[in-house]
Amino acid sequence: MSDLILPTQIDLLHVSAVILLIATFGIVVRRGFSDWLHAYRYQTIILAGVVTLIAFVTSIWELYIVSALTLGIKAIIIPKVLFYVTKKLDSPIKLEMNPYVSLRISVIASALLVAMSYFMALQLPISSDKTISVFLPVSFSLFFIGLFIIISRRKALNQIVGLLTIENGLFLFAVVVTHGFSLIIEIGLMADILVGVIISSILLFRMSHTFDSVDIKNLESLRDD
């Protein structure tokens, strides 16, 4: 009978990176409005866990506060706001019916994006702490998958979720590279996102009132022809 080999810190970091990536894929594969929000919430909770882990490894106490803030604002308040919006929307079908890129292709495309991020992280001359550079490619992947979600989907709500994913990626990037901004800036950023989400929710309401749907295709009519 073999002993269970205990994982070291770096293994823990790797495992948490894997779980974060899997959670990000949760957003890509879902179709329903509330499914995205759930997936986003799980992803953010895991992100907060990751930040806590980084804080533990690097023993920078500010990161604990940042992680708590992430949990509070991004995992609880923002999904709440968006859930409220989803409930109030007029459109009866709360599903992404036919996105620009079909789900199966977008899943595989996201995998390729992850591959590319890992490749780029090798190439870019950003030197960082060895233990934390595990997350550099992950933050790239989050960023690109977020962009990809915005590009490939039709519904405005999903665009918001994509934007938030990008933000999560940037946040992770900042934590990894600079070990966190100063606390004030961090709080300011959080407030900024909160305001952004509220504004875009209001926009969503306006959109669904004007066009009777949240399909961003309608925005094409705004083009000056």
């Binding site: 894997v18 899997i22 199966r104 292709i105 899943v107 595989i108 995998a111 591959a115 090798l122 490619p137």
Partner: peptide, 23 residues
């Protein structure tokens, strides 16, 4: 015809596994 989405997930998951091994 939605089953293929699920299988695509399996494919991409193992693709990332490969990436994790190499990079």
């Amino acid at each position: 015809f939605r089953v293929s989405d699920l299988i695509a997930m399996a494919i991409s998951s193992s693709m990332i596994g490969v990436i994790f091994f190499f990079l």
